[in-house]
Design a protein around this nucleic acid. Structure first.
Length: 573
DNA sequence: GCCGTTTTCGGCCCGACTGTTTTCAGTCG
């Protein structure tokens, strides 16, 4: 889904890198980075904005607005082209190597004309860096290692993998004598869909035992750095883990510091500076006297800055600071708000567990309602028939009587055909309590055809939820191309909910699309699409993504009481 | 290059670690 905002974000980020490499003003480079992020995360399509509108975007001033305008008009930014002419693209690639920044990249290029990662690798092999200032033996070894990692990984791991690893490490370190608190922070606590590295915090008086414990974990493959305050290791799976040990009285400040995205932290620190304060991982201090004003809890730190506590999933500098200052932070949806799952499968199609087991597991979770939505005949490998689904409905109605607290809904996951048609005729669909409709094929229609297809599915009076709307698979498959603003508008107009599919390799819609869809007044359903009993627990990932999309319980139909939900599902029929 | 209760200039987050130019620059998060 490359929209102009994303293209401009990439271009401005490239320009920032080139400025940093060519030794320009570091603050100028940072200014472009900030603008790039702001434009990438801006909800409105920048192609619809004029120069004044562009300057409404934070960190976009006259100069950058002009460059964006030029790009929107001509498809080019002259200044970027000029810098590209001076610095080959391969030099920019060099700074992706861990341990190699803009300064060293420039030196390599100027002194040795090295202009690609492979040239650098060859130069190290040929021992051509020996006489280069700042490139001692150790540095060369680190670069060689960095290139290896870059080639192997590509970096980030899925949220679910990171969470499993983090929970194991936290459990291990919590057992170490002297551990007062232990938790993970970073992008994992913010529930980003993929995680680059783990940030683990320990509160304790002495650090050595924790540094040793982390270094010696079975999962630890190598120790990258080890000090008294910080130790970094890499696991066998290639995931970097940074451990910080802080004094117990600094716990809240450290959690605040290591949880927020960089941009969020810059904002909170700037607020501190304006109040004559200094915010670090050790606490909030009076700049003049050095006296500590708050540090024990995150609440205390935010409060002393004049802010309410901000949910970790919001700490991205996507407007949460402004919302907090104006008392307009959303009360984001939590696991506890979810009253039921509206997209699940059984072994009647491709699920693993029989109806009874799925229903029992759902009841154990304390749900007030639960929908079974097996695949429809259009997905022919599932061999669904009218008879089979009607027999399932009969069995489900029997079970429904046995569950006092949890009501059962009978549904199906329809297939959206190339023209937006679905599997069964209206009179048969009328027999279901709800229909989810999803794309399972024909992913490469053109944008216009795909948009028509999705809009037509929304217009079907029996389709209540659009399942995994973009159909992306994280790290494996791009989402389909459509005019999403048109699709979101159609959802809002027709009363069709968008799914936030909680499968960890889908997380579809993702947070940025949720933020956009929300602008259209759409409702959402956070569903697990469970194909087995353990999948029901994926809900936490979906809720995390929903929070990152600023959704409140009112936005999410499966937090609603059953009567309100049923009214929504009928779409005014 | 952006921004403004420090308001059109002068600041921009800040601490930790590594390697090496051994007193500090570069990189990272």
């Amino acid at each position: 889904m490359a929209r102009p905002n994303d293209e401009v974000q990439a271009l401005l980020q490239e320009y920032a890198d080139l400025v940093a490499i060519t030794g320009g003003d570091a603050f100028k480079a940072r200014a472009y980075e900030k603008a790039a992020r702001a434009i990438g995360g801006y909800p409105a399509d920048i192609a619809t904005l004029d120069a004044a509108g562009l300057r409404e975007i934070p960190n976009v001033g006259r100069s950058i607005a002009d460059k964006v305008t030029e790009y929107l008009r001509t498809g080019k930014m002259t200044v970027v082209e000029e810098r590209r002419a001076k610095i080959p693209a391969g030099v920019r690639e060099l700074i992706a190597i861990p341990g190699l920044g803009p300064k060293k990249a420039l030196r390599l290029y100027e002194d040795l004309r090295i202009a690609s990662v492979s040239q650098l690798a060859a130069a190290i092999e040929a021992d051509a860096l020996a006489d280069l200032k700042g490139f001692g033996e150790k540095t060369q070894e680190n670069i060689r290692h960095g290139i290896e990692l870059l080639r192997r990984a590509g970096g980030r791991v899925p949220l679910s993998v990171a969470l499993d690893t983090a929970e194991e490490i936290v459990a291990e370190l919590s057992r170490v004598t002297g551990c007062r608190r232990c938790a993970y922070a970073g992008s994992l606590r913010r529930m980003r869909e993929t995680v680059g590295d783990l940030d683990v915090l320990v509160a304790a008086q002495r650090s050595d035992a924790f540094m040793a414990a982390l270094s010696e974990l079975p999962a630890t493959a190598e120790v990258i750095a080890r000090g008294t305050k910080k130790t970094s290791v890499r696991t066998a799976k290639g995931l970097q883990v940074d451990l910080r040990v802080v004094p117990p009285q600094s716990w809240g400040a450290a959690m605040q510091y290591f949880t927020g995205a960089k941009a969020h932290n810059i904002r909170t620190r700037t607020i501190a500076v304006h109040q004559g304060l200094k915010l670090s991982e050790y606490g909030l201090f009076d700049t003049e006297s050095g006296r500590s004003l708050a540090s024990r809890t995150e609440e205390e730190v935010y409060a002393r800055l004049g802010l309410p506590w901000i949910a970790p999933t919001l700490r991205e500098d996507r407007g949460e600071i402004e919302a907090a200052l104006h008392g307009e932070l959303p009360e984001v949806v939590t696991d506890k708000d979810i009253r039921g799952d509206l997209h699940t499968h059984t072994d009647l199609t491709d699920g693993l567990a029989p109806l009874e087991e799925m229903v029992e597991a759902a009841a154990q979770r304390g749900y007030r309602y639960y929908a079974v939505t097996d695949h429809a005949p259009g997905l022919s490998m599932q061999r669904m028939t009218d008879e089979k689904i009607l027999a399932q409905r009969e069995r489900l109605r029997e079970l429904d009587g046995t569950r006092r607290r949890m009501r059962l809904l009978h549904g199906t996951e329809l297939n959206i055909g190339p023209d937006g048609e679905v599997d069964w005729p209206a009179e048969f669909l009328a027999g279901f309590d709800l229909c989810v409709a999803s794309l399972h094929s024909h992913f490469d229609l053109g944008r216009a055809a795909m948009t028509r297809r999705l809009v037509r599915a929304c217009e079907n009076p029996y389709v209540s939820i659009l399942g995994h709307p973009t159909t992306r698979l994280i790290g494996r498959r791009q989402g389909v191309d459509a005019d999403w603003d048109a699709v979101f508008a159609a959802c809002a107009r027709t009363g069709t909910a968008l799914e936030v599919n909680a499968q960890p390799d889908r997380l579809d819609l993702g947070d940025e699309d949720i933020l956009r869809a929300r602008e259209h007044g759409v409702r959402f359903a956070v569903n697990t699409d469970a194909h087995a009993v353990p999948h029901l627990a994926y809900l936490r990932y979906g809720v995390g993504i929903a929070q990152r999309g600023w959704l409140t319980p009112d936005d999410v139909i499966n937090t609603w009481p059953l009567t309100r939900l049923r009214r929504f599902l009928r779409k005014g029929r």
